[in-house]
């Protein structure tokens, strides 16, 4: 990529500055919608192409997966999305890091509520193991092919997925044995 990219760190506050798009230079990413926000490049592969896109990016130098998380857009379905992307309830958000280009690229994958399943990224980036378990635990999105799809933060017998928007705050009785609930 171009050397000028180095200047555009993830915390650059110049909202208008746009680094050169990585997605535009990779033929493997043709047809994937791209948007920019605050200097970050965000691409929106669909669920079927998601692992393939990540693999392509990995070959282009994004050798580390910095972060993988999800968001539940149940009460904010009208969020701005680029053309060609249909907003679903869940979104898988992956931040890939390229040491070579010194920049991040963000993948946002739409996951429908009725079929909250995504392919695992574990075989491309083994470092996503804990992160995918966290997403499964807190959002209930299952990753097919993940070697150890169990809860990680909540107790193993916990019911529900706390970070979903329909999971209330403080309205759930404490689930300890013999302890009376708050109401």
């Amino acid at each position: 990529m171009v050397q000028g990219d180095v200047e555009d760190g993830p915390v650059a506050t110049d909202g208008g500055a746009r680094p050169q798009s990585v997605a535009a230079t990779l033929p493997g990413l043709a047809g994937v919608p791209v948007s920019f926000f605050r200097g970050d490049e965000i691409i929106f592969p669909d669920r079927e192409r998601y692992v393939e896109v990540a693999t392509t990016l990995k070959r282009a130098g994004f050798i580390t997966c910095s972060d993988l998380c999800a968001a539940d857009y149940l009460t904010y379905m009208g969020r701005a999305l680029p053309e060609g992307v249909v907003g679903e309830r869940f979104e898988l958000v992956v931040n890939l890091l390229s040491h070579e280009h010194r920049r991040y690229i963000r993948l946002r994958v739409q996951i429908p509520a009725e079929d909250a399943v995504a392919p695992t990224l574990f075989y491309v980036y083994p470092g996503t193991e804990n992160m995918e378990r966290e997403v499964y635990d807190l959002f209930g999105i299952t990753f097919t092919g993940h070697p150890d799809m169990t809860r990680i933060l909540m107790p193993q017998d916990w019911e529900g997925h706390p970070l979903r928007k329909d999971y209330g705050v403080g309205r759930v009785p404490v689930q300890f044995k013999d302890a009376p609930g708050p109401r």
């Binding site: 998601y50 692992v51 075989y123 299952t142 092919g145 169990t150 809860r151």
Partner: peptide, 24 residues
Amino acid sequence: ETTPGTVLPDKPDAVDFAAGLPGV
């Protein structure tokens, strides 16, 4: 590891990782 009450998806064959590589 295997704990009751958790959803375990189909694990890929422990040897044939290429087959378990979704999307590729």
